[in-house]
Amino acid sequence: MKKLSLIDKVVFVINTILAAVLLVSFILPFLPPKTFSSLSVLSLGVPFLIIVNVLFFIYWLLKIKRQLILSLFVLIIGYIFYGSLYKFSSSDDTETSPNELKVMNYNVRLFNLYHWIDEKDIDLKIVDFVKSQAPDILSIQEYHPQSNIDFSFFKYRYEKLAGLRTKHGQVILSQYPIINSGSVEFPDTSNNAIFSDIVKGKDTIRVYNIHLESLRIDTDVEKLKEEGSERLFKLAGNTFKMQQFQTELFLLHERQCHYKMIICGDFNNTAFSYVYRKIKGDLNDTFKEAGNGFGRTYAFKFFPVRIDFIFADDAFTVKKFKTFDEHFSDHYPIMTTLSLKAVE
Score class of each variant (00 low, 15 high):
Pro135Tyr: 03
Asp121Thr: 08
Ile149Lys: 07
Trp116Arg: 11
Leu138Cys: 02
Asp121Cys: 08
Asp128Trp: 09
Val108Pro: 08
Tyr106Pro: 04
Ser147Thr: 05
Ser152Cys: 12
Leu124Ala: 15
Gly169Ala: 05
Lys160Val: 03
Ala134Ser: 14
Glu119Gln: 13
Ile117Glu: 09
Tyr106Met: 06
Leu110His: 12
Phe154Leu: 08
Leu164Gln: 14
Lys155His: 10
Arg109Pro: 05
Lys131Trp: 04
Gly169Tyr: 04
Lys155Ser: 13
Lys120Arg: 13
Leu124Gln: 15
Lys131Tyr: 06
Ile122Ser: 07
Glu142Gly: 00
Trp116Lys: 13
Arg165Glu: 15
Ser132Gly: 10
Tyr106Asn: 05
Lys131Phe: 09
Ala134Lys: 15
Gly163His: 12
Lys160Ala: 06
Ser132Trp: 09
Ile122Phe: 08
Tyr143Arg: 01
His115Arg: 14
Phe111Lys: 06
Arg157Glu: 14
Phe129Ser: 06
Lys155Trp: 03
Gly169Met: 02
Ile149Ser: 03
Tyr106Ser: 06
Asp128Gly: 10
Ser132Ala: 14
Val127Tyr: 08
Tyr143Trp: 00
Asp121Gln: 13
Ser132Cys: 08
Leu110Tyr: 14
Pro135Ile: 01
Leu161Ile: 01
Thr166Ala: 11
Asn148Lys: 12
Val108Leu: 06
Ile149Ala: 04
Phe151Val: 00
Ile149Trp: 04
Val108Ile: 10
Gly163Lys: 09
Lys120Trp: 09
His168Ser: 10
Gln141Trp: 02
His144Tyr: 03
His115Ala: 13
Leu124Tyr: 14
Glu159Tyr: 02
Phe153Thr: 01
Ser152Trp: 12
Leu138Arg: 02
Arg157Pro: 07
Lys155Asp: 14
Phe153His: 03
His168Leu: 07
